[in-house]
Design a protein around this nucleic acid. Structure first.
Lengths: 136, 136
DNA sequence: CTTTAATATTATAATTATTCTAATCTCTTT
DNA sequence: AAAGAGATTAGAATAATTATAATATTAAAG
């Protein structure tokens, strides 16, 4: 259980103002044991449910993007009508269950080393992400 | 140079009616040497430019989705506000130049074998796709 | 060959996802 | 405490995608 005070510090330390909207969003996102995969809409609904307070959808977008930039969230490359995010910001990969539209983490250790034998002049590799689509 | 007649046959053979809208879309998509990465909007604009005819945006969506289902196009898993597609339907991977928002194919041979040492009961692997993000 | 009926396709209209910006809040400086 | 500077919020606007009524295509019958 992380306290509200810790979220306030976390926000201040990354020069994000600790507004009540952001603290509510932190409660929903980071007050959990397991990694959490979500869309903006999932998060929006959970905020209402869990905190009883209303945060506008635009603010959820703003905050998620601010957290992304600070490295508190990761965007998951997947084709869906909605963008998926992950609270697990370590280097890892994903299964995507196409039928159930569900994401599952794959630890980096569970994927053999990936060798890219091609390079683009003037560019360097920022990240390598694997998406494994699952069917029945 | 592929002829209009060939597109008509291709469409008929996959039980898609060869409407003039679809033929125009085929001209833009498949009348080229190199693989082509595009968004629905790119395609919509190219149709107007290249054929001089107007096809509604909704029809572009419909047709791209029909072609996807028939296996004539591939959807590229990437996080962008718009969905990207590829005329290269062989098994391959992508670089994504984050700054320029540009996709580059990586041939399957240029990526070492990818071993997934985790499995999900009752599910089998449908595809494995690698996205390599590039920065300067 | 037409005509007709069944079905597929198109494109407008509706919906959903995301971003823009004026009003508001937070924080620093005094 | 008050004010100014800048950050944040949320309503309004825009952009992306989908649903459906109107239209077009095709196969079958005459």
């Amino acid at each position: 259980m992380t306290s509200k005070q810790e979220f306030i510090e976390k926000l201040r330390n990354s020069s994000l103002r600790p507004t009540k909207q952001r603290i509510n969003i932190c409660e929903v996102l980071f007050n959990r044991d397991k990694t959490f995969h979500f869309t903006i809409n999932d998060l929006f609904n959970l905020i209402k449910d869990k905190t009883g307070e209303n945060v506008s959808l635009a603010t959820v977008y703003n905050t998620v993007h601010a957290f992304l930039k600070k490295g508190y969230l990761k965007e998951i490359p997947i084709n869906s009508n909605q963008t998926y995010f992950d609270t697990n910001v370590t280097d890892h990969h994903h299964f995507f269950d196409v039928k159930e539209e569900k994401l599952i983490d794959i630890k980096n250790e569970d994927v053999g080393p990936i060798e890219i034998q091609k390079s683009i002049p003037g560019k360097k590799i920022k990240s390598v992400e694997v998406l494994v689509k699952l069917e029945d």
